Computed example of a mutant assay.
Amino acid sequence: MYRKVFISYAKEDIRFANELYDHLNTKKYDPWLDKNKLLPGDNWDVAIKNALREADFIILLLSSRSVSKRGYVQREYKLALQHWEAKLESDIYIIPVLIDDCKVPESLTRFQWIKYDNSNTYEAILKALDVQRNIYLKDAYHTDLTDAHYTKSLPLDLYIPLNIESSVEFPQFPQNPLFNAEYVNAFIQHDIMEQMSYYASFMSDEDYYRELPEHLREHLYFSSNYEIHYISSKYLSLILFVSAYWGGPHPNHRIVTKNFSFRPVKKLSLKDVVKFDDIKDFIADSFTRYTNEYLHNEDEGHLVNRIKEEFEQWGATDMDFVFNADLLTLMSNNMLPHAFQGAANIEIPLKDVELLIAP
């Protein structure tokens, strides 16, 4: 929702258009570029007009070539201005981007432009898109919650220069009529930053890094992404996926699940969602009953015993889970070795448990 970005450009500036298109794609926006979207046999004139009309944002790549060129580029400028007439004057809708020292057309001077120079250009464009998208989303919560969030990124902050790839993305929610977004966002960001801090502290140990074999250093990375598992006017259930490699036989993968109820906003544990007397017994019974078919043999007992041992060893009182309107999913990824990851999750129909909530 509110992710469609139309990119207008002159054919001589296709390199810049492609770079912007690729960058927006990686940031979960939906850019429209004729070279990538038009299919053989399409009526290109109709397709372009439809894409312009349906776009939530229009980025105009301005250059000395495009602003002085007669033809379709000028028509796109005029169509963009026509669609802008239906927006609020305060809306961010048309974003001019100067890719050389051209003169901005008089009709576009009312819009703040940005100079295309380096990666900071992309960040500035994304900031503008995110600001306006959040405004739209505040009004959209009551009608469509499925995409009512935006993606935030953070750099992996290391105090010594290391060649470590990082991609950190997690969901954040704009303030809205249903719940205190600041409260929810703080919990989500805290968990991601805690994982980042652990990894950064580990990799900033100069002795450890120095002893790493050279062939392993080039593969070091830290990444996070997410999945909104369920959102309604009452509940939010999501998964944060964290993956990192700091040397050794294989990468390390973790999940962090977050579940909230609204009005008042509250972080949910498993015992807030399902009624049980003892969590170890509930987990053991659930995995015995719902484990994947291929583990319904001697391996199943080993799996259940391993999970029970984890609870007893660490004194755990909760486990990772997500839910939707039909299923409760218990996720033991963090408790099990890699060999059992295929059986780490089980799905329990909500009708089979005594619920304390009403999704």
Rank of each mutant, 00 (worst) to 15 (best):
L129Y: 07
T143P: 00
T109A: 04
Q112D: 07
K127P: 00
C102V: 13
D117C: 07
W113C: 07
I135D: 10
Y116D: 06
D117N: 09
D101Q: 10
Y122E: 04
W113M: 06
R110G: 01
L145Q: 01
D130C: 11
Y136P: 01
Y122M: 06
K115N: 14
T121M: 02
C102G: 08
L129V: 10
F111N: 00
L108S: 07
Y141W: 15
Y116S: 03
I125V: 08
D139V: 05
N134P: 00
S107H: 08
T143C: 00
A140H: 10
Q112L: 13
E123A: 09
I114Q: 03
I125D: 08
N118Y: 05
T146Q: 11
I114W: 01
Y116W: 15
K115H: 14
E106H: 05
A124D: 13
Y141G: 03
K103Q: 12
E106G: 00
D101V: 03
Y122D: 09
T143A: 08
D144W: 03
D144L: 07
K115V: 09
Y122I: 07
D100G: 07
N134T: 09
L145E: 01
N118P: 11
N134W: 08
P105R: 00
N134H: 09
K138W: 03
N120M: 09
D139L: 02
L129S: 05
S107F: 00
D144T: 10
S107K: 02
T121N: 11
Y141H: 08
D147F: 14
D100C: 03
N134S: 14
V104I: 15
D144H: 12
Q112H: 13
L145S: 03
P105H: 07
T143R: 03
K138E: 15
K115E: 11
T143I: 08
A124P: 01
E123M: 04
Y141L: 02
L137M: 13
N120T: 05
A140Y: 05
L145T: 09
E123I: 10
K127H: 15
K103C: 12
A128S: 13
S107R: 03
L137Y: 08
T143V: 05
N118R: 09
K115L: 07
R133P: 01
T121G: 12
D130F: 00
H142R: 14
K138C: 04
D147Y: 15
I125G: 08
V131R: 08
D117K: 15
E106W: 12
P105T: 04
Y116C: 00
V131G: 01
Q132V: 02
L145P: 05
H142P: 00
D147I: 00
Y141M: 04
A140T: 12
C102N: 04
D139R: 02
D100P: 07
N134K: 15
K103I: 06
W113R: 11
V131N: 11
Y116H: 12
I135C: 07
A140D: 13
P105K: 01
S119G: 10
T121I: 10
Y136L: 04
D117F: 14
D101P: 01
K103D: 12
D100K: 05
S119N: 15
D139M: 02
A148K: 02
K127N: 04
K138H: 13
D100T: 11
A128F: 12
D144Y: 14
K138Q: 14
I114N: 02
D139E: 11
Q132E: 15
A140E: 15
L129C: 02
Q112S: 15
T109G: 02
A148P: 04
T121L: 05
K127M: 14
T121Y: 05
D139T: 13
K138T: 10
L145I: 07
